[in-house]
Design a protein around this nucleic acid. Structure first.
Lengths: 231, 231
DNA sequence: TTCATGGTTCGATCCTAGTCGAAGCATTCG
DNA sequence: CGAATGCTTCGACTAGGATCGAACCATGAA
C-alpha cells in the first residue's frame, strides 16, 4: 500500500475545472498570458493567478517573462502526453462535455497537440511515413531512417538545427480521438510549421483546430503517400 | 475553449487521496473487496463504499458479486495505462511519496501492472521477444509472429483460449519506472501466470512486487534471450 | 514623475465534498 | 429462524479550497 509515485496530487491539480480548462487551452501549444487564461477558464485574474502558481509549483507549467507580460506554456511534451491520454480515457467513458459543437468534427480531423499535428491527418501522416520507410519503429521509440532524412531535407526541414535542440527529434504520441499514434518531437513540430509556411494549413484562432485548404490537403496526401483519405 | 473531452471529472476522481489509494491498490490486478480497499485507503468502510460508487459511475471500476463478497477490479487495461502514465509524470516531477522504502527498488525491478509484468524485467522480456522476432511492432500495435506463436505454445501457453477472450492478445504498456514499453494484453498476463506456475516467481503479499527466485531469473534471462541482465 | 496596464498577494466568504456514526439491506451459516 | 458478516444509505459535521474584492507590486508609456 502507498507504493509508487503520488498520483493524487497530480489528479487533484487536473481535477479542478478552472485548472483543467487552463491546461486544455495550453494544449494548443501557444504561450498564453495570465489574463487570456483567466478568460479561457472563466474565472477572474486573481483566481487564475493562484491556479497558475499551483501548476507551476508542480512543474506542470513553465513561465516566460517578456516585457510586462508573462507567458505560460506546458512544461514539456510529457505533460501534454498525459493530458491526451486522460482525454482518451474520458472520451471513451462518455465523459464528454455536454456541448459538442460542429467544431468537434474538425478537431478530430486535424488539431494541434501541444506543438505538433494530431487528429486523423496526423495519424495518416505517421502511417504514411512508416509505410514509405521514412520512419522506423523500434520498441517504443521511433527514429528517422536515411531515406527519411533525405525526405525531410527535401521537404525543407533543417535537420541540423533540430539535432541541436535537446528534446528528442522523433516521439510518438497517442491521439485521444482515434487512439492511434502520431508523430511528436521536434520533427513533428517542424513538419507542422512547414505546413503553415507552405500555406497548406492555418490555425483557427482561439481553438486547437488546424484547417487545411483543399489544395493543401491534396498536396499533403500526395506528399506522404496517404492512401485512404481521412474521412 | 472548452473543447474536447472533460478531463476535470476524471482528474478529480483520481485526485482524492482515498480514491487514489484504491486505484493504486487495484493496479496490482487482484480483485479486492470493499473492506480490503477501505483498509488500503485508510478510511472506514462507509467512505470507501461511497468512493467505490463514484468510481463505478465513471466506469473506472468493475464489480463482481461472489457470494456475499463484492470484488472490485479496474474496468479495463486502459484505466491501468492512464494510471501508469500519471505515475510516470508524477515520478518525474518529484512528486514522489515521502516514504520511499527498500521496496521501491524491488518495485522498479519487477512488479505487477494490473495483470501482467512490469518493471525492468518486464521491459527486458519485451525487448527480448522483439529482437528474437517473436513480436512484431506496427504503428502503436504489437502482434505475435508465427515464430512467436510457436514459442508461446512451446512455453506452455494455450493460445487458442487467449484468442477466445475478447481483449486484445498483445498490447504495449508504458512503465512509470523505466519509461519503456512492456507487454500487456492477454498474452502478457498469460506469461506472468506461467512464471508463477513454473515457480520462477511469486507475488509478495500485500504489494505489487514480484519476486523472482535466483534460478527463476536465470531461466527467464535464458528463455527470452535477454543480454544485459536488468541490474 | 504620473498614469495605465498586467499580475500577484491578502483576507473574508462561501460551499462543496470527504468523513464517520448509526441504521438499514442482503446473504450466508448454524 | 436468528445471528453474523459484508456492504450500502442516510444524516450531520467539518475542513479545505475555490472564489472574488481590494489593496499592493512591477513594468512600460507619456
Amino acid at each position: 500500500m502507498k507504493e509508487g509515485p503520488d498520483i493524487a496530487l497530480l489528479g487533484s491539480l487536473i481535477g479542478d475545472p478552472a485548472r483543467a480548462n487552463i491546461l486544455t487551452a495550453l494544449m494548443s501549444g501557444k504561450a498564453l498570458t495570465a489574463t487570456e487564461l483567466a478568460l479561457e477558464a472563466g474565472v477572474t485574474v486573481q483566481t487564475a493567478s493562484s491556479h497558475l502558481k499551483k501548476l507551476q509549483d508542480a512543474h506542470l507549467l513553465r513561465q516566460r517573462k517578456q516585457g510586462r507580460h508573462r507567458y505560460f506554456t506546458l512544461a514539456d511534451d510529457d505533460v501534454g502526453s498525459v493530458l491526451e491520454a486522460m482525454m482518451g480515457l474520458a472520451a471513451k467513458r462518455g465523459l464528454l462535455r455536454t456541448r459538442t459543437g460542429p467544431r468537434d468534427e474538425a478537431l478530430r480531423k486535424a488539431r494541434v497537440c501541444y506543438n505538433h499535428l494530431a487528429g486523423d491527418l496526423g495519424v495518416a501522416i505517421y502511417d504514411g511515413m512508416v509505410s514509405q520507410g521514412y520512419l522506423a519503429e523500434a520498441d517504443d521509440d521511433v527514429s528517422l531512417t536515411r531515406d527519411g532524412e533525405d525526405f525531410a531535407e527535401a521537404f525543407g526541414i533543417d535537420l541540423a538545427s533540430l539535432v541541436k535542440s535537446r528534446r528528442p527529434m522523433c516521439k510518438s504520441c497517442l491521439d485521444w480521438s482515434s487512439r492511434r499514434t502520431h508523430l511528436a518531437g521536434s520533427l513533428g513540430s517542424a513538419l507542422l510549421n512547414r505546413f503553415y509556411k507552405l500555406g497548406w494549413a492555418a490555425r483557427v484562432e482561439g481553438s486547437r483546430v488546424v484547417e487545411f485548404s483543399a489544395s493543401g490537403e491534396r498536396s499533403l496526401l500526395a506528399k506522404f503517400a496517404i492512401k485512404a483519405p481521412a474521412s
